[in-house]
Each structure stands twice: as structure tokens, then as C-alpha cells.
């Protein structure tokens, strides 16, 4: 079977992140590169969000399963570290889906992330759009999130932190 790189990208757009199932590996920018060699062997290069992200093995398996289900016979998934993943790679569509899901998307670019011992960042509540929110904890339910609470609608929410 002969496949094109564009076709592989379309299939990758259907592989979901196991921790945040509204996002695909493409929305997150985890899939970095697709290479199709002769005879249809495919290599997909992925990069971890956090070095200890426990979802990486599952993501790798899911990519392999998806491509094999589509008929690709030789699938190789490679992990690369450089350049390191940044929330800047998250698509606009991904940010919209996150907010709808109740997780505040990363705000601004990773370049303005707090420097060492800086001040707290203001985040918009994904439920009522208030800017009057407060960080409850720098760490949340997964490595990529921190915990906030809205001071207006009082709802607690996860914030996908800038990295």
C-alpha cells in the first residue's frame, strides 16, 4: 500500500490524548514529523510534553494501532527530545476544544512564562470568562496542569500551564 505523508497526518488527527481525550496528538503538537519511505514504511516522530508523562507509552501504542488499522504495515514511532515541546505548538482548534472541555488553555506564549521566583500569572476562567481567578496549586491532576479557582463564579478549574 502506498500512503502519502498528508494521509498519515489526517490519521494522526484522529488519535486522541489518553489524559485529555478531547485533544488529538496533532492538536497538542506531540506528533512532530512523518516520514514515508519506499515500500510504505512509516516513521512518526513524537515528543513528550513532560519528561515523565505517563501517557507517552499509550500514545505511542495508539499511533501504531491507528496506522496499522489503516493498513500501514511497517510503523515506527520514535521519541525525540529536541526541540523541547512547548504549549506554543498547541493549535488554535486545540485551545478552543480545551476551553469547551472546562480546562483553561495556556495563555500567551511560553516566552512570558514566569522566570525563576517571579509573580503569579492571571488566567481566564473557562466557565464564566472572568479574569478574577486565583491559583490554588501550581500542580494539578496531571503534570501539564495547575489548579485554579474563579473568584466570581467560584468554580475550581484546571489550567493547562504554559511550558
Amino acid at each position: 500500500m502506498v500512503v502519502t505523508e498528508a494521509q498519515i497526518w489526517d490519521w494522526l488527527a484522529e488519535v486522541k490524548d489518553p489524559e485529555i481525550p478531547v485533544l488529538t496528538v496533532q492538536d497538542l503538537g506531540i506528533a512532530r514529523e512523518v516520514l514515508v519511505k519506499e515500500e510504505g514504511a512509516v516513521t512518526v516522530k513524537i515528543t513528550p510534553t513532560y519528561s515523565g508523562c505517563p501517557a507517552m507509552n499509550e500514545i505511542e501504542q495508539n499511533i501504531r494501532q491507528k496506522l496499522e488499522a489503516e493498513g500501514v504495515e511497517k510503523v515506527q514511532v520514535e521519541t525525540i527530545l529536541s526541540p523541547p515541546w512547548t504549549t506554543d505548538w498547541m493549535s488554535a482548534e486545540g485551545r478552543r476544544k480545551l476551553k469547551e472541555y472546562g480546562i483553561a488553555p495556556p495563555e500567551g506564549s511560553s516566552a512570558d512564562k514566569k522566570t525563576l521566583f517571579g509573580t503569579e500569572k492571571k488566567v481566564t476562567c473557562p466557565h464564566c470568562d472572568s479574569r478574577n481567578t486565583k491559583m490554588v496549586s501550581q500542580f494539578g491532576s496531571t503534570a501539564c496542569k495547575s489548579l485554579y479557582q474563579c473568584q466570581d463564579c467560584r468554580e475550581p478549574f484546571d489550567y493547562f500551564k504554559c511550558l
Binding site: 513528550p48 513532560y50 519528561s51 515523565g52 508523562c53 505517563p54 490554588v136 496549586s137 501550581q138 500542580f139 494539578g140 491532576s141 503534570a143 489548579l147
Partner: peptide, 18 residues
């Protein structure tokens, strides 16, 4: 929250160790 924080830091350390 702090239980979660330390577990997260531990996870990052293990990831770097890997």
C-alpha cells in the same frame, strides 16, 4: 494539593532519570 505537587515533582524527576 501539596501531595499532588510532590507526586508531580517526583514524576518529573523519574522522567528525567529515564
Amino acid at each position: 494539593e501539596q501531595d499532588i505537587a510532590l507526586s508531580n515533582i517526583a514524576l518529573d524527576q523519574l522522567g528525567q532519570a529515564r
